[in-house]
């Protein structure tokens, strides 16, 4: 990682030229520049942004982002594919991002540079949310011991609109077990949902068991479950997540591994 604080314009230019040369050679460094700057855009339209303190990000794929102090979106940017150059004129440090087709130029001119940072970022992983309710249900199906030893799942209602039955199976003694799954702390609502279902079904099947499975079951929910002869299981996410991760990955190989 290279860092330069409050550099003189000449030092800033040398830093940027060296780092941008690295970018072009695909050494993959992310370059950040902070300072007082103006931004000019020329292309399909033209815009001028007067001086302000901003953070400029130059990404290895040719993406340029100019961020102000507020808002999520950058105040100006170039999509991937731009080529960058640094310059110095009249004591002002310039950063130019040029795209052909359509021809677009973003010119950032610093009258003061506060900070320059260059660091490699390695990231081949897509953002992926693990641990949805569907994941938890799938994990319980695949690893029914998490519910209880001997439990054999028979049916999983993945996209049910009724939403009251997550998992259905039999226990080691052959009794039917319905399982309500919650990915966060289960409260009275989930306990009642399970009870409503079991209550309806017990007429036909007096031995029917109902189990609420969640990382945590609230005190009041436990009381309600106990009152109705229902059960609960607390499963720790730390135990379930690796299983979900393994299932998610599903061992999908990349073509790059072959030939």
């Amino acid at each position: 990682m290279n860092i330069l604080r409050d550099p003189e314009p000449e030092a800033a230019l040398a830093f940027l030229q060296a780092e941008l040369a690295g970018l072009m050679e695909r050494r993959g460094h992310l370059v950040q520049a902070v300072g007082l700057c103006t931004v000019r855009y020329q292309g399909r339209a033209r815009s001028d942004l007067s001086a302000g303190e901003r953070l400029v990000l130059l990404k290895p794929d040719g993406t340029l982002l100019v961020h102000g102090a507020e808002k999520a979106k950058p105040i100006n940017w170039q999509p991937p594919g731009a080529s960058f150059t640094a310059s110095l004129a009249d004591g002002l440090v310039g950063l130019t991002a040029i795209r052909t087709r359509p021809e677009e130029i973003v010119q950032v001119t610093f009258s003061r540079v506060d900070l320059l940072v260059s660091l490699p970022l390695h990231d081949n992983v897509d953002l992926d949310l693990l641990g949805t309710e569907d994941d938890l249900q799938a994990a319980l199906c695949r690893h029914p011991d998490l519910v209880e030893p001997g439990f054999v799942p028979a049916r999983r209602e993945r996209n049910t609109k009724r939403g009251y039955l997550d998992l259905d199976g039999r226990d080691a003694k052959g009794r039917r077990v319905v399982v309500e799954v919650k990915r966060t702390t289960a409260g009275v609502g989930e306990a009642q949902q399970l009870w409503r279902y079991v209550e309806r079904m017990r007429g036909q099947d007096p031995d029917l068991r109902g189990v609420l499975v969640a990382p945590r079951v609230a005190e009041r929910a436990r009381a309600l479950l106990a009152d109705h002869g229902l059960e609960w299981r607390e499963v720790e996410w730390s135990k379930v997540l690796p299983k979900i991760e393994a299932m998610r990955a599903g061992g999908q190989a990349s073509l790059a591994r072959f030939g």
């Binding site: 052909t100 790059a256 030939g259």
Partner: peptide, 17 residues
Amino acid sequence: MSLVDTANMGDPKVPNL
């Protein structure tokens, strides 16, 4: 229809299987 710049579109290497 405007075309997309092909400069950054590489040709995938077809694995020899």
